[in-house]
Design a protein around this nucleic acid. Sequence first.
DNA 1: CCGACCATTATGTATATACATTATCACCAA
DNA 2: TTGGTGATAATGTATATACATAATGGTCGG
Lengths: 241, 241
Amino acid sequence: MKIVRDATLHQRILGDIEARIVSGEWPPGHRIPFEVDLAADYNCSRMTANKVLTQLAKSGLIERRKKSGSFVAQPRAQSAVLAIAEIEAEVQSLRLSYSHIVHARSKRRANAADKQRLELSEAASVLDITCIHQAGAAPFCLEERLISLATVPEAEAETFDTVSPGTWLLKRVPWSAAENRISAVSAGASVAILLDIEKGTACLVIERRTWSPAGPVTSVRLTYPGDRHALVAKFAPGGEG
Amino acid sequence: MKIVRDATLHQRILGDIEARIVSGEWPPGHRIPFEVDLAADYNCSRMTANKVLTQLAKSGLIERRKKSGSFVAQPRAQSAVLAIAEIEAEVQSLRLSYSHIVHARSKRRANAADKQRLELSEAASVLDITCIHQAGAAPFCLEERLISLATVPEAEAETFDTVSPGTWLLKRVPWSAAENRISAVSAGASVAILLDIEKGTACLVIERRTWSPAGPVTSVRLTYPGDRHALVAKFAPGGEG
DNA sequence: CCGACCATTATGTATATACATTATCACCAA
DNA sequence: TTGGTGATAATGTATATACATAATGGTCGG
């Protein structure tokens, strides 16, 4: 049994409804009491009931239809929140010391492959950086990054010796949109050497592309040896978990 | 330039603030106008401004402190929404015909490994199912699943020949909490045979555990040949994307 | 100089009210 | 039976108001 101390009315109503949905007492398709009825049940105003139901609808737990009422939604795709931490924080949470090594860094005019990775239309300069993130003395993750100098010209002056490109960009271009693609690949010869693993080892690969309103920012490929790392994504009907 | 038709006042204020945060015009730490000022700017009531800021705070874009005001938050972990579709839908979105084959199905008293996977404390019966999801004529994904019969006794009567275990459970136990663990592994000999791939091929593995209020429901391990599949997780500052 | 106290200020929650929007349903006429 | 038409019922959005809560900052006394 969950104990709620000092819950506001809003939280109490929200919790009660969530509990009934999650427990199966109100299965998908079941009609939830109308706002006016809820208001009467809890002896509150309709606005309060409305805000609760609006929030439930935003979190996807219920669907609302004018004139018909509110209904428990069909759970569709299992959608979960994936927290991708900064690599430095990740390493430190393993109680290992973090460092990074810039293995290669070059500027060039974008070739066809670069344009596709960054979704660039016109010709532009890009910065190509390869760097290795270390946990203790061992390689932890390989980072292969492309930065669009049209969007982030300040990057050209940066060596990334003291700050890793990811951290630097996060400070420079906060709150941009991103798309992550997660897959598994076998380590090729060059990757195997850089990560100090055997060729063919299964690796978890995250390819992230980031945009700001000014245009494409960066495209990064993070390669983790599969036996050393896993991503965790959680889902809780209420929202946070 | 984004064109907004018929936007409500709420959406307009929200969009304006988001735009200024995302563009960097208001960097992390910057103080957002007080509710009363916002209300004056947009010629609306404080309640409307309050709802907008409350929503921005819930989505993590701003932080609110009593007496001090509201501030643009520091972007911490890149958190993204991972949409894990049902396998059938996933296959069909590739324009391939879907089918599944139940390869093994057995009931037993939970052994030590089972108890750990399901986080069971007492001894209980479990159902162990291995099934292969096919896209066209080729294996697409291997599913190794454990179902707690204490929580879902109806599963014992089900053969899962016509409905896959995942789909069946989604209908039976809606809106439960889940934790997904994503990693990369090399295919072992048995997995390689079942998926018709070479031994050692890199595979993407999703291990999902699901709970209902009544207790642990199921633990499933989905193995995808790495070159045939990827997960996509998106992040947009506003919320949906 | 320093700490206790208190007024101020901004957010947090809730109410009562108003009007807009939109499916649905029932009724009525062709 | 069919099709339109308008009343109705539910949600959607916004306002004005009230009081609670909590942190800040200044004042005053020791």
